[in-house]
Simulated scan of single mutants.
Amino acid sequence: MQIAKLPEDVQSFIRTGVTITSISQCVVELVLNSLDAGASRVGVRIDLSKYELQVVDDGYGLNLEQLNLIGNRYMTSKCNTLADLQGNLKYYGYRGEAIASIKQVCDSLIIISKPKGENVTYSKVLKPNEDGNYKAVEAKLDRPGHGTTVVVINVFSNFPVRQKQLQHSLEIEQVKNELQTIALIQPQVKCLFSL
């Protein structure tokens, strides 16, 4: 799969994009990206005392060129035409908005990826309101296997009222429920969750 910018007519159709309103929604968007990347194992770690979360998968991974596109609006590997939006159940996420939206609600978003079949690990740090300013680089530490790790640091820092009003136990319960739902529809995928 190659990542490319959505055509203007498709962008217009889905302009509302993804609005991240909860920790569970953030986790679900990242896990669905993992599933779309062919992951057979997905790990989710949450530390609400620091408002941090991490999703690790063993999917295809991203090469340097694809990683450089990630985080900008309307970048996706799953949709090329309006017809792809109508009844296409092949992919879970298709709008090219999840990473870009999550990036806007945190201090920073770190992506570390090792493409399948390559011996190089790449990383990229994304900050809110800085589209295209950050380039992926070869990581100093190597991932042991192919796949992608996404770390969200200080989620909702740009929305202090939302962050303050998070009910930690409720958020954790919502994440558990969402992961159980994903596990039911994808029983071949092993999902791990830790606090």
Results as ranks from 00 to 15, higher is better:
V27G: 05
D131P: 15
L170Y: 07
L184V: 15
I110N: 14
F13E: 02
N33C: 07
Y92V: 03
V56K: 07
K127H: 13
T19C: 14
N154P: 01
A39Y: 13
K124T: 04
A183G: 09
L64Y: 13
V10N: 00
G59W: 04
N177K: 13
I23E: 12
C191L: 14
E118Y: 12
K5N: 00
V189H: 02
V18S: 09
S113M: 08
L67G: 11
A39L: 14
L48W: 04
L192I: 13
I23H: 09
S77I: 05
C26Y: 05
N177T: 13
T149V: 12
V42W: 06
L170W: 03
S40F: 03
G38H: 07
K114Q: 10
L85D: 00
N129Y: 08
G93P: 05
S77F: 03
L6R: 02
F193H: 10
G147P: 00
M75S: 08
R41W: 02
N129V: 06
T148P: 12
I112P: 07
D131R: 13
L32G: 08
I110M: 12
A39Q: 09
S22Y: 13
C106R: 00
T16S: 07
A4M: 11
E173Q: 11
N72F: 03
I99N: 14
S169M: 13
K127E: 04
Y91P: 03
L64F: 11
L179W: 13
C26M: 10
E173T: 06
K190A: 12
K78E: 03
V125Y: 00
R41T: 10
T149H: 01
C79L: 00
T149W: 08
V10W: 00
P144Y: 15
V161Y: 08
R41Y: 06
E29V: 03
E29W: 01
G132V: 14
I182K: 11
S77R: 10
L48S: 05
E52P: 02
K135P: 04
I3L: 13
C191P: 06
S24Y: 10
V152Y: 11
F13Q: 02
V125N: 00
K50L: 04
L109Y: 05
E178N: 12
H168T: 15
D36K: 01
H168Y: 04
Y122K: 07
L35F: 02
Q165F: 12
K164V: 01
M75E: 07
Q2W: 05
D142V: 15
N68K: 02
V28F: 05
A139Y: 02
L184H: 07
S12N: 08
I172G: 06
I185Q: 14
I20T: 09
P160M: 04
I23C: 02
E65P: 10
N72T: 01
L6Q: 08
D131N: 12
V125M: 08
L170V: 01
T16I: 03
V10E: 01
T81I: 00
G145W: 15
N129D: 06
Q11R: 07
S22M: 11
